[in-house]
Write a protein that binds this DNA or RNA. Sequence first.
DNA 1: GCCAACGTTGGC
DNA 2: GCCAACGTTGGC
Length: 151
Amino acid sequence: MQYWLMKSEPDVFSIDDLKKQRQTTWDGVRNYQARNFMMNDMKVGDLVLFYHSNAKPPGIAGLATVSKKAEPDPTQFDKKSEYFDPKATKDKPRWFCVKVKFKDKFKELIPLEEIKSEKALKDMLVVQKGQRLSIQPVKEKDFNHILKMNK
DNA sequence: GCCAACGTTGGC
DNA sequence: GCCAACGTTGGC
């Protein structure tokens, strides 16, 4: 079992939206590295830190679980979708997405600033400068450390 | 709103 | 295959 961090802009889709919906399709990812993580590495049952990006403040808002393994992202075939990709075909889909379901909402968001101030977490990708990857692997020790910060 | 960092595109 | 130009991300 592996651990992940997935970014979402709360204005678009927040932890509360996930809680309400219980499960969501993580579509719209158009970055190969992030796609490869979903396609090759994510397994049902993997735990996910749900991160609010472009938020005030940014930080980790809660937990989710991978609930369905990667399948072709339907939005790539949808001409009306902003994620439509003319180069993708049903025979050769380009983009894949997993489904995740709600697990927990932290009592308080753990701000990025607080994560940065934890020396033990200095290697987490999310605190690295210029790190834009929207799906990141997380080490077990870092995951457990984050859980402890959820007071 | 700014802008650094990064990924992608396309001409050559 | 290089790399300049461009678009996007996301913290601040």
